[in-house]
Design a protein around this nucleic acid. Structure first.
Ligand SMILES: NC(=O)c1ccc[n+]([C@@H]2O[C@H](COP(=O)([O-])OP(=O)(O)OC[C@H]3O[C@@H](n4cnc5c(N)ncnc54)[C@H](O)[C@@H]3O)[C@@H](O)[C@H]2O)c1
Ligand SMILES: NC(=O)c1ccc[n+]([C@@H]2O[C@H](COP(=O)([O-])OP(=O)(O)OC[C@H]3O[C@@H](n4cnc5c(N)ncnc54)[C@H](O)[C@@H]3O)[C@@H](O)[C@H]2O)c1
Lengths: 217, 217
DNA sequence: TGTATTTTGTGAATCACTTCACAAAAGAAT
DNA sequence: ATTCTTTTGTGAAGTGATTCACAAAATACA
């Protein structure tokens, strides 16, 4: 594969790639064969230049005068995002939010396969949740390794999150998605993303509170 | 109130204000009276200059040579974020993720009070979920207005999200948090935040896929 | 074949965000 | 009181992201 050597891709660009991917899924369903940066940008409230620049980091996928071929571009962005592979996912903490996520079918459709569940509640351990047995947290390190888990979703209470995280890191997992509202410490080679809904709500209350902010010098 | 007139505050700054707020809650519990930008930055893996710059957009809260008073700074950031008020929240779609969110106690602690629930499933309408009656979606516009709802959380399937969103906007609500994986269209004066967990997972798979990317010219 | 039209791909320019660096302010020490 | 130490607050500098603007490439059509 003629892989262009490249600099760091910004988080915003990675995020927009996911947005393009979703848009292309829709366009494919609607029967579009090609799409211009102009139209793609209009649909996702971005600028055409932004779309073209983002894609240009990874190669030249379009045809001048015509636009981008929907099917191919979708496939190509899928590859870039790693969606052409299956990913083994484990979830720790099968409570309110954990249960909701396990039953979320979109994840599997995108190649994220929840293979293992863990909890420390004796009443839950051994029980069958949506066809998956809930394992004892005590066996986490060994099982993550045996099942070659690549991504772990942490949905335990804040107080337990760092300990769980440490064990996950020790097992060699390099990607963690954390729902607990705490700043977890991980080594540099582990990617950690925090999904903090309270912070998002606070963004809304900030916006409502400061909507008539003075714009002057 | 001597409000400094100001330029647009960046989303990153708003996000970090929430991070500072959480850190300060912890520091207060740990008994700290003051905190320096250096120490606050170390804890949250930011730079001291970033902390000081962020805070300086809103005023001068620190004492040179000493740092920031924990209690006061927490209160001040709380005000900036709008956490000194109570916010009336409604949730539309009481399914897997909606139910998990309704039972999440942290929201209420921060002043986000879930007052109304809506669904279109006749089996759910009228039933009592965690002490709140689930209302018929048909009555949403009137009820949002009557109960003076300021923030709406949308947790309906993707196909229903735009219609729900339109009704919410029509009711005069100016802040929406959307969990459905679609790009919703809202007028300019409505703040819309998308919480898309698939996109976050894709960020992880991107990172795992591209971790050994060449860094050259 | 030639001309008009469309739209990409990308350096250059602009805009936004972060970090630097230091004067000023405050407390601590002598 | 004076000096030393710490740490803020903030312009200026530096870095990174977005937008501009246009040549180049491809199609459409006469
Ligand atoms: N419920 C929500 O809507 C929501 C929203 C945002 C964030 N969160 C966060 O997600 C996390 C989970 O929230 P929840 O509402 O699902 O809580 P929950 O109490 O319903 O679930 C937590 C689960 O983790 C298990 N657990 C506790 N300690 C453990 C450990 N050491 N090892 C393994 N499992 C352990 C518990 O047995 C329980 O099953 C919390 O950190 C919460 O702040 C929840
Ligand atoms: N479950 C998850 O973990 C998860 C994760 C991320 C995103 N999401 C997204 O959140 C949304 C809800 O997911 P879910 O898993 O809770 O689905 P769900 O089917 O369990 O719940 C959806 C609820 O919305 C109700 N509903 C449907 N149409 C409606 C309408 N027009 N008006 C009012 N209510 C209506 C349904 O009756 C149901 O109660 C989806 O868009 C999904 O993609 C879910």
């Amino acid at each position: 594969m003629a892989k262009k050597s490249m600099r760091k891709i910004s988080n915003s660009t990675i995020h927009r790639l996911s947005i393009y991917y979703r848009a292309l899924l829709g366009l494919e369903r609607e029967g579009y064969e090609t799409i211009s940066s102009k139209e793609l940008a209009r649909r996702e409230k971005l600028t055409p230049a932004q779309v073209r620049k983002d894609l240009s980091f990874f190669g030249s996928f379009g045809t001048r005068g015509l636009g981008y071929p929907v099917k191919e571009l979708k496939a190509r962005i899928g590859e870039i995002l790693g969606l052409n592979k299956l990913w083994n996912v484990a979830m720790v903490g099968v409570g309110n939010i954990g249960s909701a996520l396990v039953s979320y079918k979109e994840f599997a459709k995108q190649g994220f396969i929840v293979k293992l569940l863990f909890d420390n509640d004796q009443r839950k351990i051994g029980s069958n949740h949506k066809g998956i047995i809930i394992n004892d947290i005590a066996s986490i390190k060994q099982m993550l390794q045996e099942q070659e888990i690549q991504i772990v979703i942490v949905t335990v209470p804040a107080a337990a999150a760092q300990k769980v995280c440490d064990e996950v890191v020790e097992a060699g997992v390099k990607a963690i998605m954390n729902f607990a509202p705490v700043s977890l410490k991980v080594p540099d080679d582990v990617v950690l993303l925090n999904e903090n809904m309270s912070i998002e709500l606070e963004h809304l209350s900030f916006s409502l509170t400061n909507r008539n902010m003075v714009l002057s010098d």
